[in-house]
């Protein structure tokens, strides 16, 4: 009777289990639904990579955990059995096998990550030559004393980290550059081409956008979950992110590096417009920004610097003391 049961050949069981594990792993790799929407050109690259890792991981997980559960049931001690198990202290071919297989897997993943990282534009950290424009300024500025000098120096520093190139555009200059500044607890977006300053990031869809990221007080981290990219904003060092948004809509911008008590509240939005909407947004905000500036410039002549700066004091995180100090400097 027992023999009848054992007639199912072990190879057949192994084969069935193998197919099942492979099938489940591939299915889960594709359908885990763990990642949010894909909104940048980098997102599918990262997600495909993640899928491969989830597939391999699921297979290994099922094999090892399956083995553990099987062993715990099959090899539990029979009641009253006080004898030892057979003396088996190793098996060299088996040990070589399970050293070699993970080694191949991680080497493969290593090569794959370098490839994905390069396609994401990670290897051109300096970016499209913008950094070179700055580099000669720094020489003149370097000799200035005091803290402002260092702020300016930071701008001229050409050690730039992050992603400077995009998957498609390579080393071409970006279509749009936005300067991003992290302060406790907000992001400020400065559009140097149009003079717009905003609290949300507005970008046109399908355009090559470069963010030049700075921090004023502490380290922040600029994260666009739907874009799968993140870069720390570091005081004293400039960092870059570059992406092409592939879908219009509103998506979160999150600070991912502990930056103080209200770190969790340091959230804003990236709004991906179609070109038309984007132009309209630029037009509206330029109208708002430029006359203001003109007025300010006109008024400025009748007012002292201190009075001119006053309305911005709160926004800049500058106190009266600094303002007076600045007045003395000029």
């Amino acid at each position: 009777m027992a023999k009848e049961k054992e007639t199912v050949p072990i190879s057949l069981i192994t084969l069935t289990l193998g197919i099942a594990v492979t099938g489940i792993s591939f299915w889960y790799g594709q359908n885990n639904g763990l990642l949010p929407e894909q909104v940048s050109e980098q997102a599918p690259l990262v997600d495909d990579f993640f899928q491969v890792m989830v597939t391999i991981g699921t297979a290994l997980f099922l094999l090892v955990e399956g083995a553990i559960v099987f062993i715990m049931i099959k090899f539990r001690r029979k009641k009253g059995d006080e004898t030892d198990a057979p003396y088996v202290e190793g098996n060299l071919p088996l040990e070589i096998f399970w050293t070699a297989i993970p080694a191949f897997i991680v080497i493969g993943l290593g090569i794959y990550s370098v490839d994905v990282y390069s396609q994401m534009g990670g290897f051109d950290a300096i970016g499209s030559g913008i950094a070179h424009n700055h580099s000669h300024h720094s020489v003149e500025i370097a000799s200035l004393p005091g803290s402002e000098a260092n702020l300016l120096m930071a701008e001229g520093d050409n050690r730039e980290y992050g992603m400077g190139a995009t998957p498609v555009e390579g080393k071409l200059p970006p279509d749009l550059t936005v300067n991003v500044t992290g302060i406790q607890y907000a992001w400020l977006f400065n559009y140097p081409d149009t003079g717009i300053v905003a609290g949300e990031l507005h970008v046109p869809v399908g355009k090559d956008v470069q963010l030049s990221i700075e921090a004023q007080d502490v380290i922040h981290s600029f994260w666009l979950p739907q874009f799968r990219i993140k870069q720390d904003a570091i005081p004293g060092e400039k960092t870059l992110l570059r992406f092409v948004a592939t879908q219009t809509g509103h998506y979160p911008v999150v600070c991912a590096e502990l930056c103080g008590a209200y770190h969790g509240a340091m959230r804003t939005e990236v709004i991906v417009h179609n070109q038309e909407e984007y132009n309209q947004w630029v037009a509206e905000n330029q109208i708002a920004a430029v006359p203001d500036l003109n007025k300010a410039v006109a008024v400025q002549q009748e007012r002292s610097d201190g009075a001119f700066l006053e309305p911005f004091v709160e926004q800049m995180g500058v106190n009266e003391h600094t303002v007076t100090a600045l007045q003395h400097l000029h």
Binding site: M53, G57, I229
Partner: peptide, 17 residues
């Protein structure tokens, strides 16, 4: 297994912190 995924820079850019 989750540690291996975290060890790869391109994926870590998304999930770091």
């Amino acid at each position: 297994l989750s540690g291996v995924t975290l060890g790869t820079a391109p994926f870590d850019l998304h999930v770091h912190d």
